[in-house]
Every structure is written in structure tokens, then in C-alpha cells.
Amino acid sequence: MAKFIQTPETFFVEEIPLAECCGFGNHLWVTFSRKSMSTFFIASKLKNILKIKETEIGIAGNKDKLATAIQTISLPSRLEPKIFNAFKSIGAEILSAKLHNEKLRMGQIAGNKFKILIDIFSREDYENISEKIDDAQKKGFPNFFGPQRVSDEHSIEEGKKIFLNKSSKNGNRKNRFLVTVFQSAVFNSYLKNRIKKQLYPNPIIGDVVKIGEKLVVLSDGLKNRGEWENEAILTGPIIGSKMILPLGDPLTLEKEAVEKYGIQFDEIFLSRARGSRRECCSKPKEIAIKIISEKKVELSFTLQKGSYATTLLKFIGVETAIDKRGKED
């Protein structure tokens, strides 16, 4: 079986910006390259070096620590004279810095480009990867959150307490992230159950589906539209007080996923977390596979924001492991 060992030398990720900077404003959008440091680690270091509040730093997404990553952070433009030395001191390289009239917000990216080096042990490994990645491009793969997000049971439990407003911890960036860890675990449980019940990837009556940019509850009337099967994308719960709810059997499935974690479904409406919906299927784009040597291939692709490269690798039959060496946060 092909194998991927994640290190900064084998895992490359680059954010795809959602929009161009306007060239003026009170925020400086800094695009930079870094290795072996998480996004939260960098934000924390910059906060201390530049002596600013955490809320003055804008982040679109958290990139893996064990990666070579290109991403963007926004900072107050008044700090521009100090920014080059600040990034240099933490081992990050600035690639560009542009003014904009808005702070960068979480999720404000179009997607991510990946380049991954995979070890292969036979011609069959290469052929299997090629076949399965083509299948993923045509049909998609289950959009599970990766182990980077949900493998730590302690973090899931802490996130649940904060989600239920039963923790004394304040609302800083790290604790907001812990809430997303809990929400991600619930989503993964829901999606796993749908697959087990053979209710993936196609939606059923009562599901919340995405058609274009709109979220709607799938009804008999909508089903009678000619091509709804090709238009409607199944979504799952990112639980919270303002989440759009499904009806009927799909609602029962979501209740089961929540109650698995020892809370009553109605409790989610008391949370400060607003909640949202997440597409249950993700399709990679711009796929290319290149032979580097007899024992190594390079796989490159683009994923929509929020989708995990490690989830795709698992789907195409690549064993994954993490090299835990490197800087500690």
C-alpha cells in the first residue's frame, strides 16, 4: 500500500484568495511562507512581538503545523514598518503585503492548493492511486474532518463544555477553535452513520441541501423539478443555535449524532455558537500525478475550503502517518 508520512518536506499547501486587496485601508494583508509552525502559533507570536490585541489579527484558516504553507494574515496597517522584522524573527518569509479596507475573516478563502509526496512500493500502488483519484474527481469523496481536527478526545470534551456554556474559559481564538473541534466530531459521526445506512451521497426528502449558493430543505415539490439530483448537494450539521434544521428522518439522524456525545438535541439552541451546514461530499480539482522516482510520486490537487487532504488520501487508499518531529507550539 502507498504511504504518506507528513512532514514540511512532503506536505505543501497554499491558500487560494477569495478576492484581491483594494490597495487602501487600515488593514495590511500579509502573504507569507512558513514551515513547522501552526497558524495559531504564528498569530500568538505576532501578538506578543507587535504588542497588539488578538482581535486585531485576521486569519482565514488554520494550516497544518507539519507543512510548508503559504497563507495570509491581516494586521493593522499602522504596524507596516515593524512587520518585516516581526515575521523574520519567527522564521516566516513575507511574500507580499497589500492594503485592504477590511480585516481578513475566518473562512475568507476560495480553497487550498496541495502538493503531496507519496511513497509507493509497486507499479500497482501507482495505478491504484491514479484510478481512485480519478474516481474522486468524478464522484467526490466523503467530506470528513481530518484527524488533525478530531483525533484528540480531550479537546472534543473541552470543546463540548465551551459549546454548552459550561466552561469558565474565555472566548479567545484557541477556545473558539475547541468549539469547532466538538462540532467537527459531531459532523463526522453524522456522516459516518449516513454512509453506514447507505444514505450517502444522495439526499432524501427532509435533508438540508445546497443548490447554487442557497440552503433549502428538500421537499416533494423540489424533488419533482427535473434535474434536482444533479443540483442538490447534501449537507450535514455544524451544530449551533442558528443552524438550519432538516425534517423527518434526516432530523432523526442529526439528533442521533448529537446525543452520541451525551447531550440533548435541544441544548444546541442554548449555545453561543451559531452553527452552519457543511457539504457532505467534496470533489478535488486540478489533479495531477507525477512520478518523481521509482519509489515516490507527487500528487497535486485543489480542494474547496474546509476539506482535508488527509481525508482524500485515505479515500484513495494511501496510508497516512505524521512525523512528530519539529518545533513545538
Rank of each mutant, 00 (worst) to 15 (best):
E124P: 06
A136H: 04
E158F: 03
R123G: 14
G140C: 05
I120K: 02
D134H: 14
F144E: 05
N112Y: 05
D119E: 13
I133G: 07
F145Y: 13
F141W: 07
I120V: 08
L117T: 02
G159Q: 08
K115W: 14
P142H: 12
S155M: 12
E127W: 11
K115C: 09
S155G: 11
K139T: 09
Q137C: 04
I156P: 04
K160L: 00
K113E: 11
L117E: 06
Q148T: 00
R123S: 13
V150K: 10
K160P: 03
R123A: 07
P147Q: 11
D125A: 01
N128S: 14
I116T: 10
I162L: 07
I156M: 04
S130Y: 08
G146Y: 06
F114I: 06
P147T: 11
D135C: 10
P147L: 09
E158M: 00
K139G: 11
H154P: 11
G140A: 06
A136I: 07
K113P: 05
I120C: 05
K138N: 10
I156T: 13
E124D: 14
D134S: 15
F144A: 02
H154Y: 15
I120G: 00
D135V: 14
I162K: 08
D134E: 15
K115S: 13
F121Y: 09
G111S: 04
D125N: 00
K161V: 00
K139R: 10
E127N: 15
S151Y: 02
N112W: 05
N112K: 04
F144N: 01
N128D: 13
S122I: 11
G111Y: 01
